[in-house]
């Protein structure tokens, strides 16, 4: 992984440099016009919000049942990234909504449940930071609940009345919009892998510091 890290970082940076050009060339959506271009970063960030919640939940499950420290490190890294990508979703969404719907925020099922999902992972980080001894187990359980919430957030647009577009938007995307969209998704996934690897490495180094502190105390 160490060998592949720098090339992956370079490819991610290049993809993020190229993505705006492809997005600018993509056709305008009929009713929303230019503001719909937010879609190309908003949706990939939302996909990673969901994906990262799963990574955190599954890693937490492995940690809780098998007591594997490396799984706990992945869970901590993924929780932080869930908060980062969630923040991107919760900021870009309302900017788009202000122009498309005329309001910044609507207390509907999708928006409210997304906010709650994000808050769950903020709570995870707060528990890890200030929870004291045993906080990692409590936080792990919270992550599993957070992960379980993801499918409900995803399907909420299909079951409740909401201004938010339904889940059918991405599968039925026009061919000219498909290319830039999946390119952005790939760029975001690479960015996620790069950040997750770095953040997990930080946790591993912290564990080494802790072990050395203990060795010095003995």
């Amino acid at each position: 992984m160490k060998k592949a890290y720098v090339p992956m970082l370079v490819v991610t940076a290049l993809m993020f440099a190229v993505a705006p050009v492809l997005i600018a060339r993509a056709p305008f959506e009929t009713t929303m016009g230019l503001i719909q271009k937010i879609f190309y970063f908003h949706v990939p960030a939302a996909m990673l919000l969901f994906g990262s919640a799963f990574v955190c939940g599954i890693s937490s499950g492995i940690f809780l049942f098998r007591r594997t420290p490396s799984a706990d490190r992945v869970a901590t890294a993924a929780a932080e990234l869930t908060v980062l990508f969630g923040l991107i979703v919760l900021v870009t969404g309302p900017i788009w909504a202000r122009k498309a719907w005329g309001v910044w925020w609507q207390w509907d099922a999708r928006l409210t449940s997304s906010l709650l999902l994000w808050m769950m992972f903020v709570a995870y980080l707060l528990v890890r930071r200030y929870g004291g001894p045993g906080a990692e187990k409590l936080a792990g359980a919270m992550a599993i609940f957070g992960m379980a919430n993801v499918p409900f957030v995803y399907v909420s647009v299909n079951y409740w009345r909401t201004l938010h577009p339904k889940t059918s938007v991405v599968p039925t995307l026009a061919p000219e919009m498909r290319g830039p969209f999946w390119f952005s998704v790939a760029a975001f996934i690479l960015l996620y892998i790069v950040l997750l690897t770095a953040r997990r490495y930080l946790e591993a180094q912290r564990a080494r510091v802790e072990a050395l502190h203990l060795a010095l105390e003995d």
Binding site: I38, W96, K99
Partner: peptide
């Protein structure tokens, strides 16, 4: 608004 949204993503990352 589009610039603000994309700018925010870059700044946050």
């Amino acid at each position: 608004m589009v610039i603000a949204a994309y700018g925010f993503v870059w700044v946050a990352v």
